[in-house]
Write a protein that binds this DNA or RNA. Structure first.
Length: 491
RNA sequence: CGGGAUGUAGCGCAGCCUGGUAGCGUGCUUCGUUCGGGACGAAGAGGCCGGAGGUUCGAAUCCUCUCAUCCCGACCA
């Protein structure tokens, strides 16, 4: 079993890669740094999209779509934003190819140079705010609550499937408000939407907090984030929500007339999560036997496998199995009945185990005689024989139970990997020997944060929301601190 | 862009040092026996050895150049 792929202890990074390939979620493409998301991986993304999209709609947002290309001049309008993204932008300079006169193939037609170069969006603030200028004229136009599902490109040096690729899929919300308070409220609301999604759908407990100035989004006044802990003790930023103040409104001249007939700049937010969440999902729950998916996001929640020797047996089993499948589907549960005779049962067991299908039902001649079915749960790998009566309700409860168990397991793990450090030595020791989240005092300066990063590779993951006043001294400089922040090595 | 490595069948690799025209595992195809945790046997299909040039009677193998990919750093959702 699992003989051909790595375990987490042997090589965590390799384990992750093996899982992505073997579970058929994604693969590297012919384009350096870009991935092909395969149907099974995409199905998980679609489940995520569906759940998030509903949450966005429920909080009053609507979807729209803005161009992939952004005129270069737009980028230079917000100084810190430019600085943050300039180094990783793909640029379109020409719009035509021609046959190579010297031989085979095509070359860029130099006569087709664009007057103004286009940037492939690394994020859409600039094009969106340039557009919002024409949409927002009056306080009656506010708030403007828009989300876009899109791809973006950030020319990364080192890439990893789902966690960091040159092109990735995400959603980006961009909202405009009349007041600062409203915008901050929106920023916090969407952070909570993300946190709720992570915890209740992904079964992934997250820390809610704000970013230190060094880690803040380019162009934001405040960046809120949710941070999750992976099984190797490294942190992963799972989502961000930014309060942009009036930075973009001023850069793009987005003004409205207030009730008092005064011209005011609007207040902005933006927020996003990406296909990186799939990476988080993999690293949070999966084990050495393969992927483990929370039922709420599993493309297939229940798989039924028949065991038979003769066609007659298969016919009898299928009759029962298909009835169960239908009843489960009536409860909104996604079921696959795999009666392919081109693969053997044992092969199928392994296949679905790799793919993290939460519940497996096995029905053979023995079950037919006894009116039973064998039920296996992916999270604990436990097997049990259930009586068929009211099997659908039992499965329904089992799925809920698995979802809860995964969350609890991840939460217990995070708790066990969360520490406090009161001295530099203690801090370094915890980082090297335990990993996880470390609550420690920091003097609040970017210089100190930078030094800690250089010396330990740990960064401030977040300044936790609602943290209690807890005076102490900075672990590096010994200067006074008003509260602990969360450090970790991160993805 | 610095440091290290690797390109040979769909995938994973051996062969290279000591040149003689390519092999193993897996996967794939067909047939038979199997089927409650990745079955077994038999028979098949599949590669101008990353590319270009050179040395040689002869190059996967030696030499030169080139391209590409991967790993480690700086950057990052």
């Amino acid at each position: 079993m699992a003989k051909d792929f790595s375990s987490r202890d042997e090589n965590y990074a390799q384990w992750y890669n093996d899982l992505v390939f073997k579970a058929d979620m994604a693969e590297n493409s012919a384009v350096r740094g870009c991935m092909v998301i395969k149907p099974y991986g995409y199905a998980i993304w679609e489940k995520m999209q569906a759940a998030l999209d509903k949450k966005f709609k429920d909080t009053g947002h609507v979807n729209a779509y803005f161009p992939l290309f952004i005129p270069k001049s737009f980028f230079s309008k917000e100084a810190s934003h430019v600085e943050g993204f300039a180094k990783e932008c793909a640029v379109v300079t020409h719009y035509r190819l021609k046959n190579d006169p010297d031989g085979k193939g095509v070359i860029v037609d130099e006569s087709a140079k664009l007057e103004e170069e286009l940037i492939v969006r690394p994020t859409s603030e600039t094009i969106i705010w340039d557009t919002y200028r024409t949409w927002i004229k009056s306080y009656r136009d506010l708030p403007l609550l828009i989300n876009q599902w899109a791809n973006v490109v950030r020319w990364e040096m080192r890439t990893r499937l789902f966690l960091r690729t040159a092109e990735f899929l995400w959603q980006e919300g961009h909202t405009a408000h009349a007041t600062s308070e409203e915008a901050v409220e929106e920023t916090e609301r969407m952070l909570e939407v993300y946190a709720d999604f992570a915890e209740n759908w992904m079964a992934l407990p997250v820390l809610r907090g704000t970013k230190s100035p060094n880690e803040r989004f380019a162009g934001a006044i405040e960046t809120y984030c949710i941070e999750a802990l992976m099984q190797d003790g490294k942190a992963l930023q799972a989502g961000t929500s930014h309060f942009l103040g009036q930075n973009f409104a001023k850069a793009f001249e987005v003004q409205y007339l207030s009730k008092e007939n005064k011209l005011e700049y609007v207040w902005a937010t933006s927020w996003g999560v990406s296909t990186r969440l799939i990476g988080a999902l993999i690293m949070a729950h999966s084990d050495d036997n393969g992927l483990v998916l929370p039922p709420k996001l599993a493309p297939t929640q229940v798989v039924i496998i028949p065991i038979y020797k003769t066609d007659d047996q298969l016919a009898l089993i299928s009759e029962k199995a298909e009835q169960i499948m239908k009843n489960l589907q009536d409860k909104g549960i996604s079921v696959k009945y795999d009666k392919r005779d081109t693969y053997k049962p044992g092969w199928k067991f392994n296949e679905y185990e790799f793919k993290g299908v939460p519940v497996r039902l096995v029905m053979g001649p023995r079950d037919l005689e006894n009116g039973t079915v064998e039920v296996s749960r992916r999270d604990t790998l436990e097997k049990a024989v259930y009586q068929l009566s009211d099997i659908e309700t039992k499965i329904e409860h089992l799925l809920i139970n698995i979802q809860d168990n995964l969350y609890q397991k991840a939460l217990d793990f995070r708790e066990s990997k969360t520490s406090k450090a009161d001295s530099w030595d203690e801090f370094v020791d915890l980082l090297d020997n335990k990993g996880g989240f470390i609550y420690a005092h920091w003097d609040g300066t970017p210089e100190t944060e930078q030094r800690i990063k250089e010396e330990t590779k740990a960064t401030i993951r977040c300044i936790p929301l609602n943290s209690k006043l807890d005076e102490g001294t900075c672990i590096l400089t010994g200067r006074p601190s008003k509260g602990r922040v969360v450090f970790a090595r991160a993805y």
